[in-house]
Write a protein that binds this DNA or RNA. Structure first.
Lengths: 212, 212
DNA sequence: CTTGACATACGCACTAGTTCGTACATTTTA
DNA sequence: TAAAATGTACGAACTAGTGCGTATGTCAAG
């Protein structure tokens, strides 16, 4: 919006807040909630610590803002996916691909969710915006499964939430457990060839499961 | 080993250390490494903070000891599993069942691994004991897969580490993401009926994948 | 179009409380 | 008595949060 002038201050609340959230996301995802330092965030910001408290009230408030922004980002990406035209099997493959690539492309989000689980999802509980999410994915899957069963391509009547979990678990784990898994098995999970193989594997596993 | 006498102190270093480790495990798994408080651990212990530093040197030293003990506990459990007598498909089902139940029975372990991943597996790297683990599982899976392919029951030549990941991801995710998943989908993952269904699902998914 | 009043945006430097770690004293065991 | 094990009390450093003063933008009155 407004260009930055050389001399003197230029008020730009929106940009200041975005800047704080960017830095805070980085800090929290690499050190956790308790491990993240407000002073460290302040230092890496264009602005000061005082501003963090001015806008977000507390460390927890800042963390919650980071979490909500991360979820909001996803929602926008998940929405426009036209699957009802595709045949069931192909629709499912597209959905799985999308989930896979999404987790791969958003490790900060994956890490935030991991952190939330360590804290028993305490902050998510307080945010209605977040809870109401993800439900759309279930409806999408339910529709695909129903079409598949009706068309006779899927033999098994599976629960859509279970299927979502089967897909999500694999895609999420690849990112969330990248470091321990990589260390133990000396394997780089972010290598393109490995990624492609894994993407194919989870899709084949889900589909062959449904066909049996 | 040594019984506790009523009057006066009874030196029992082993027991003291075990006690500290028990409490520390609880503290770290519920608050993370940075969030865990040494003073809180000391208070819940039969002994004092001084002893924590006497035996473990530092907070990180204590954390590492907790981590190593958790891994050691697993190794002992995983060893005696006689699968080479069973037909491949059944052997795989037993292995999957074991993994599933193991993760379910050891949420502290799952949480420690999650915490390690947030810290980029930095502590695991420094512990040789931990790195050399898990390799036996891969050999077990490799043997089962080879037998299955030879016998013609498995059509697909899969990589054992990939298969381990497919299994492990699902079992791990159910426990590690219990809170966020439960919150979003209002589903209690520790319910017996749900557990049984999921255990069957992951086994069926892996096996139908290999048969395709 | 200038001036001044007021709300919002911002920064410095400080405080109160916490947290890891230790010096020192003491007890138990051998 | 020496060595190992343990308890108490304290300190140095860190960390979340704040008091207070300043800059900037807006809008209405002159």
């Amino acid at each position: 919006m407004a260009a930055k002038r050389e001399n003197g201050r230029k008020n730009d609340p929106q940009r200041t807040q975005e800047d704080i959230l960017d830095v805070a996301t980085e800090e929290f995802t690499t050190h956790g909630l308790a491990g993240g330092r407000v002073d460290a965030i302040a230092e890496k910001t264009r602005t000061s610590k005082r501003m963090i408290y001015y806008y977000f009230g507390s460390k927890e408030g800042l963390y919650l803002a980071v979490l909500e922004r991360a979820y909001r980002k996803i929602r926008t990406l998940e929405e426009d996916l036209q699957l009802s035209n595709l045949p069931p099997e192909q629709a499912l493959r597209v959905l799985i691909s999308t989930t896979f690539e999404h987790d791969e492309a958003n490790p900060e989000f994956v890490r935030l969710v991991s952190i939330e689980n360590i804290h028993h999802a305490a902050h998510m509980l307080r945010s209605e915006a977040i809870r109401d999410l993800n439900v759309s994915v279930i409806e999408t899957i339910a529709a695909i499964l129903a079409r598949g069963v009706a068309a006779g391509v899927f033999a098994r009547k599976a629960d859509p939430i279970d299927i979502h979990m089967l897909i999500s678990a694999f895609c999420f784990f690849r990112v969330s457990n990248r470091y321990t898994f990589g260390t133990i098995f000396r394997r780089d999970l972010s290598e393109p060839a490995t990624m492609e193989r894994h993407k194919g594997m989870i899709a084949d596993a889900v589909i062959s499961y449904l066909k049996t």
